[in-house]
Simulated scan of single mutants.
Amino acid sequence: MNWLAHVFLSPPAEIDFQLGNLLADLVRGDERRGMSAQFLRGVQCHKAIDRYTDAHPVVLRSRARIGGEYRRFSGVLVDIFYDHLLATRWGAYAAVPLNRFTADFYTAVQRRGMPLPEQAQLTLGHILHNDLLGSYQHLTGVERALARLSAYLSRRWGREFALARSIAILRAQEQGFIADFIEFFPQLQEYVAREESGEG
């Protein structure tokens, strides 16, 4: 699962937990020293979500829908597309509209003013300024997310990536992804609830 799901699967109105769940991949090692206990709980929730998702047979079925040159990126492509499916089916899972959920989260982040490492702070600022969580409801938002990922991979590996073009595969397989997501996401919600209650 990607950014939107990680925030959504956090306890509502617990901003430090939400930030830890959102930014776990950007705040690492010694950078976590001094972060609040709630932030660190969010980090652990993020890790648990990733472990559960990566090993789930329905998610593996979704990944198998992506072939060719994009097969090696199937995990991250499914993560991002699942956020799109969550956003477009938001009313089935959330009690408040998506735009209100994101606006409340952004307001809470700004009020909290948590000190963060530079890269995490830059990413968080970009999320807020461009409403990246809300953007997942549109395919153009998915394409922009894939373009950002491509740019990051290009800088890291020194060669060009063009993951935004994979949108054609995602759209062609959309009905299959929808069926997978509808089966998977309630199970993920139940898993997170058990983990947070200590029953996991």
Rank of each mutant, 00 (worst) to 15 (best):
V43T: 12
E183A: 15
E183F: 03
A87G: 05
A92T: 01
Y152C: 04
G113T: 11
G91H: 10
R89A: 04
R155K: 14
Q121A: 15
L77A: 00
T107A: 15
L139T: 12
R89N: 13
R171V: 13
A64C: 07
P57I: 08
Q18V: 01
R100A: 12
A87Q: 04
D54C: 09
H129R: 15
L146F: 02
A55G: 11
A13R: 15
I169M: 06
W90I: 02
L133Q: 04
A5V: 06
G20M: 02
A168N: 04
Q44H: 12
L40D: 10
G91D: 14
V27Y: 04
Q173W: 05
R155S: 11
A168D: 12
R63N: 07
H126C: 05
A120L: 06
G67H: 01
R144D: 07
N130G: 05
G75L: 08
P57M: 06
A151Q: 13
A168I: 06
A164M: 02
H6Y: 05
D83M: 06
Q110D: 10
D16L: 00
D50H: 11
E31H: 04
L9F: 00
E174C: 00
R61D: 14
W90F: 06
A48G: 03
D180N: 10
L163I: 08
S150F: 01
E160T: 14
Q173D: 12
H46S: 09
I80K: 03
A162N: 09
E143T: 15
L132R: 15
L153R: 08
I80L: 15
L132W: 15
L139I: 13
A145G: 00
L98I: 07
E160N: 10
F101T: 07
G158E: 04
D30M: 03
Y191F: 15
T107N: 10
Y93Q: 06
M35R: 15
M35A: 11
C45R: 14
Q173I: 04
L26R: 14
E69P: 08
A103Q: 11
A145F: 00
E69D: 06
F177N: 03
H138F: 05
Q137A: 11
H84K: 05
P12H: 03
L163W: 05
P186V: 14
A37V: 07
H126F: 11
I15S: 02
V58W: 03
Q38D: 13
P115T: 12
Y82Q: 07
F39D: 02
D25S: 10
G198A: 08
D180A: 05
P115C: 07
A95D: 14
N99W: 08
R65S: 10
F81T: 00
S166N: 01
F184M: 09
S74R: 08
V27T: 07
N130F: 14
F8I: 05
G113M: 10
M35F: 12
L40F: 09
A24G: 15
E195I: 10
P186E: 12
L163G: 01
V142K: 02
Q187C: 09
L4T: 03
T123Y: 14
L60K: 14
I66L: 14
A162L: 05
I127W: 01
L163S: 03
G20N: 10
W90N: 02
L22I: 02
A92D: 13
F177I: 05
L170D: 04
E196A: 13
